[in-house]
Design a protein around this nucleic acid. Structure first.
Lengths: 244, 244
DNA sequence: GGCTATAATATGTATAGACAAATAAACGAA
DNA sequence: TTCGTTTATTTGTCTATACATATTATAGCC
């Protein structure tokens, strides 16, 4: 979102002030869900401006999901406010360093192989394929922070074979070099098995937060990754303000 | 005037087609981060349209974070693509019924009390306050699906005392009647304690996914809720496509 | 060179006017 | 009544134009 002067302040652009006015009415509850907001020509009167200007505001509110627009009927405050939030799925290296902690990384295992049936399911590919399978550990201040279990579709990203993942985490390289068009995240909880417990330095059976992410580029699978965090150690936090 | 507009158009609006063209160039990587996208007057030429139309496209791309615009310099493809996703935090009743399963609900405990120190921390309030504390269970097809542990700030929502939460889950009432302006979500994993295990019908120690949500209305705390799901039973899925 | 004033240019916002498309509401026929 | 048709209204998109504003490039000066 572009930042102008203050959104509602005098001096801000006219359409920003109009938008702010309407948003306040909506999020404050003064206009409850289902309420019909004034017609464009009414808002033109109210603000002494052209229709293009109020149209821009209402279209933006519709894009933001605060109103629904229907020809001939008008614009209406959206029904049930969806409980949605922008979730930041961080690059662990960047995230840890942002906290001012020392980041550590260790490659536990790497192998190139013809995709097994299980690999094909995880990546969502059919037929023969070559994959790079990695397992590595992320550390913050010497403490294990996450186990990463990743498959990369070599066909989609041939350059990946030239990278040295013993010094650089695969995610850091991928986000910088491989654009993606679609991603899916799945978040679950599981009990640590013996391997994971040993690698993370926790008790077997301890609860772990699991984040699985799959990315595609124009429908071609790129990578599937599973990040396993000790449950107490890691929070995913999402903040949401409708105005945003 | 509009002779050009119909050419090669599958019905979509002109600015939609332009936007799509540019997005493809960006997300495909054809225009890498930092690349200068054509000036508005160049796009006018390319698409034989007015500046307002290409301006609308570029402003929308800027709002979406795909480009950065700088006066006198031009518009540039944004730097690092952030790993973010819109996470749908569903209303459980709606979610379960959408799957075609039977929703069940049971109020386990409800009490009105003066906020304890712990309550005040959870809600983020200071001083004296009255809260409503609920504990309830959500079921899908007779199976326990989640334990909900909720605090409601009675000052912020006095009407809450008039509701009968033995038949209607608090979330269903709240989302329909109490607008909020800010929300925070926190997702963690924990091992089921004996109480939770009994209520969910799982083994003590089994991994659970915990979603904590706090909402405010103009900085006034409304409610704090903790949802505890059996780890195997529940997935949070977030899909993200830049095109939206 | 380094500094400042000036011009050039791209974006930011706003207007008035035009026609298209969808559809709620009124109307009329069976 | 009920069904189809017409009409009126609202939103959707686009144009051509205008001026404001930020910022880069340049020219001129010391």
């Amino acid at each position: 979102m572009r930042l102008e002067a203050k959104r509602g302040a005098p001096g801000a652009a006219l359409y920003q002030r109009i938008r702010n006015d309407l948003e306040v009415k909506i999020v404050s509850g003064a206009w409850p869900p289902g309420h019909r907001v004034p017609f464009e020509h009414e808002l033109m009167e109210t603000y002494s401006c052209s229709r293009m200007t109020v149209n821009k505001v209402l279209s933006a509110l519709a894009d933001a999901g605060l109103v629904v627009r229907r020809r001939r009927a008008g614009s209406f405050v959206s029904r049930p406010r969806v409980q949605s939030a922008v979730l930041q799925i961080p690059d662990l290296k960047a995230e840890i360093e942002k906290r001012g902690e020392r980041y550590g990384y260790r490659l536990l295992d790497l192998r190139k192989r013809t995709a097994s049936a299980q690999d094909r399911v995880r990546l969502g590919i059919g037929g023969r394929a070559t994959v790079l399978a990695l397992r590595c550990r992320h550390e913050a201040e010497e403490q294990p922070f996450a186990i990463e279990d990743r498959l990369i579709n070599v066909q989609a990203v041939p350059d990946v074979l030239k990278q040295d993942f013993s010094i650089m985490p695969p995610n850091t390289w991928l986000v910088g070099h491989v654009p993606w068009t679609e991603a899916e995240h799945r978040i679950t909880a599981c009990n640590a098995d013996n391997d994971v417990a040993a690698e993370l330095g926790i008790e077997p059976g301890a609860a772990c937060l699991v984040i699985e992410r799959r990315t595609w580029r124009n429908s071609e699978p790129i990578t599937a990754v599973r990040l396993i965090h000790p449950g107490q150690l890691y929070d995913l936090i999402a903040r949401f303000t409708p105005t945003a």
